[in-house]
Design a protein around this nucleic acid. Sequence first.
RNA 1: GCGGAUGUGGUGAAAUUGGUAUACACGCUAGACUUAGGAUCUAGUGCUUUACGGCGUGGAGGUUCGAGUCCUCUCAUCCGCACCA
Length: 813
Amino acid sequence: MGYNPAEIEKKWQTTWEEEGAFEPDNDQEKRKKYILSMFPYPSGRIHMGHVRNYAIGDAIARYYRKQNDNVLHPIGWDAFGMPAENAAIKHKLHPRKWTYENIDYMRRELASLGFSFSRTREFATCDPLYTKWEQAFVIKMFEEGLLYRESTTVNWCEPCHTVLANEQVEEGCCWRCGTEVQQREMPGYYIDIVKYAEELLNDLKLLEGKWPQRVLTMQRNWIGKSQGLEFTFELSEESKKKLGGKFANYQVFTTRPDTIYGVTYSALAAEHPIVKYMIDHALLDAETAEAITHIANSSERDRAQADKEGYALGIDVIHPLTGEKIPVWTANFVLASYGGGAVMAVPAHDERDFDFASRYGLPIRRVIEGGEALPYTGTGALIESGRFSCTDSADAKEAIINYFDERGIGKGTINYKLRNWGVSRQRYWGAPIPFVHCQQCGLVPEKAENLPITLPEDVEITGEGNPLESHPTWKHCSCPQCGQAAIRETDTLDTFVQSSWYQLRYATDPQKWELMGIDRKEANYWLPVDQYIGGIEHAILHLLYARFFTKVLRDMGQCDIDEPFERLLTQGMVLKEGAKMSKSKGNTVDPDALIDQYGADTARLFILFAAPPQKELEWNDSAVEGAFRFIKKLYSRKAKVSHKTLPDIDHSVLSSASKEARAKVYDALKKSTEVYENSFAFNTLIAASMEALNALDKQEDETVWSEGIYILLNLLEPIIPHVATELSEHLFARENLSAAIPVREEVFIQDSVTLAVTINGKKRTQIAVSPDAFKEEILTAAREAGSRWLEGMVTIKEIVVPGKLVNLVVKPA
RNA sequence: GCGGAUGUGGUGAAAUUGGUAUACACGCUAGACUUAGGAUCUAGUGCUUUACGGCGUGGAGGUUCGAGUCCUCUCAUCCGCACCA
């Protein structure tokens, strides 16, 4: 009977479903493994990236299950978000209907690939039961001062009609639709992630060696810690007068206090309150005011690309150490959102300040020795720096910070590039932010018993404005505090909030989902995720938020976990014709069609064989055929098996081909532990299995065949579970899939070993010697074999590497 | 510009971590079996040379008995970050 994947796969998928084969055990005494592939957005159909992601995770999960570990391998749906609304606009489908239908379809697709997910722990983030606890956490964060509402300049995407977090702005454009982002002043909710910046940065050390280095680097850069001096620039008396007494001073931040004597001007962001005041009170000429306004209205991206531009404001500050008057400018390169939107400028030792000073003819004063030309941004001895002259940069920094601190005019400060996380979205299909605006009481959180605040069903989604805003009744409610008529918040939460705690939700027994968001004891048992698998595109956003949320939930007493993901594997993209698969390029391969033609096992085998998981994978139709061929070959060799259990074999009586075959089989077995537990180089394990099968084919001994197939099915089961289980059922009653098989070292002992004979490091010939031959015997054989190349030479040195080679170092006599 | 990674046959890729470079697979060539085959099987396949040999892991040096692997420089490609004071 030939290999019939459709039949075999259906049979086992049904069996697994009926057996509930992939449900974790509630027994917390057992050794656990939590294997998690990032959950998908239910876009409609799965794509090859999903297949790869889940094939990797499934192989690992199945491996540990086979080792009798208690395995949690869940799946769920990242189900809120814009595509559902876009579909609603386009096809007049309600987002809820669209989303849940997609989920049903995709669940079947994943099942058809034989992935061993727990079914009982599955949820969608748009399930009201999930929203309920998320809203509870958000309220708790508000009560603890971690979440607040504030009006600020935000990134606004017009097509998406929503606010974007800084992290969601890529090169000045919306991460989702690619439209250029605008700056708008708008109220919104923020989560104080900066409060955790230090811990988020520090704990990256715990992940060293377990997460890819580049992800750690990207997170470090994103957090962007810098240490320096924050001090006050006092305005001159005339300037104070000019500003109508409204301003006395402003703060600046510098990482180079050692260069402070080189300050020749100060620069303010176009958005700085002093600049605004001057424009509003006509303290600048109309033309300048207009130019500055133009800068303030342009995006960060445009400003980054523009040449240095600025205007003298006609006011001065007093240098805190020299008492000199320093002119104040406004400049387009000063960021409003960092360090107070104001800088001291030291053109001699800062490239930006130098460019600007050069353009506007501002003085340049060197105060650090070193380098030939200016600007010199390195460190060195201070000059022309008053009492600090002659000290070195490092010491001077400390001394100057102390000097400011002692006099109460400045202090050592740490700044982060990381900004607080704006979580407001002006969209329908998201989790409502559970607050109420009351005339009397202000901003009031919902009562716990009213959660979840769910979305109204009867909405028309047009893409214009927020449907929650325009809904006739939904936003009208009563204040949870005073009972008066009030207005419900119509912003919904960023979808990254949902994906920040799902890893903790899975750990909670579904029986308790109604009663609690997270079961602390179970979370502590299952977490951290032992292996997390997903795309590099989440290196910053999702992974940083999920780390942050885990720490916040820990501090709220929901769990005692510091880091959610112990180890991280970032899989490479699936390419075709050198490009990422996409509908627009028309270079996609449909997983369903692939399964129809070859079966799930072939799809899984190919995808794990074609490249190591971390690397990009180039799709190749004929290589898929090759994977299919291997499975057919493996299947057909069931006829060679004569023993129903692992046979006891007398190795010494076997033919050399049979010995070779056993050695290859055990090579593969030995390799499997390292591959499944550490390297994830499934491609090499599959290659080793292919070698083993090729070697088995070169011999006839049926006990060797039986042993070989017994072992190969064991180590391939996580990769090609259906055909492996099917064969195992028939041949070994699945006994070979339930226990670790010991490696028999004796199969690696050979009658003779082949050593390469190299002369001056160049391979010339080879010799066969007994494995326990003495060095002298080996050398004699090597000299004999290499005699051709030794004529007229004297030997200087002889090196024997046991089991490997002999190197004879010679020179002409 | 800064940071990180990667460069091995026609292709995807291996190489026990300093020890026989190119395992495994795809492709290609030849043959066998077939009414036929895009099925299956067998053999061959780094480049070069009539041969002996010579040359080969992006390039140039270096360390070493020995380097794909370590060091220095350099080139190319890819990916992050990009005025954060």
